[in-house]
Amino acid sequence: MSATYYFAIVGATDSPLYEAEFGVHRSENKHLHQFVVHAALDLVEDALFLTNACYLKTVDKYNDWNVSAYVTPSNVRLMLLHEARSEDAIRSFFTDCHELYMKTLMNPFYEPNSPILSQAFDSKINTLAKKYLL
């Protein structure tokens, strides 16, 4: 049985840009996953004062879940809700997701700080999740 992961990209103005679930899909927990991740945003802001690194590791815990965060230089937050997992795998996942997000920003048809609706982006995020998390 595989673990459940919830991944979200949150814009600089705290607006959700993208979200995805990987692993075991439990639709009754989706709103709880969103709540836990978005509740951790304040802890991400606090952690930014303690380091200048993009990868903030685990910023919050809720029951058996951990919330890890990665903050881009433009203050876009990549958030991952997960059970205990290798820090190296999560860091690699975030780094590749950040690169993919940067490529999306360079697309002249993408409006910055708007939801990412691209099927290609979603497919590539799922591929990264399979590579590093599942």
Rank of each mutant, 00 (worst) to 15 (best):
H38V: 04
F49Q: 10
F93M: 07
H38I: 06
L43K: 15
A40G: 04
K124Q: 15
Y18M: 03
A47P: 01
A120W: 06
I116G: 08
C97E: 07
S74D: 10
S15G: 12
K57L: 05
E99H: 11
L128F: 14
F35M: 11
R26W: 09
D64Q: 06
N29P: 00
W65F: 15
D42E: 11
K124L: 14
F7R: 07
E21S: 15
Y70A: 03
Y5P: 05
L17Q: 03
L56F: 07
T58M: 02
V37G: 02
E19W: 00
L133M: 10
A89W: 08
G11Q: 11
S86R: 14
H82E: 10
E28V: 04
R26Q: 15
A53M: 06
F121G: 01
K30W: 02
N63M: 04
D14K: 09
N66A: 03
I116N: 06
T72F: 01
Y5S: 06
Y5G: 08
F35N: 08
N113D: 15
N126V: 00
L133R: 09
T127I: 00
S2L: 13
A8K: 03
M102E: 15
L81N: 05
I90D: 06
Y110R: 08
E99Y: 12
L48H: 05
K130N: 10
Y5M: 06
A12N: 07
Y55A: 05
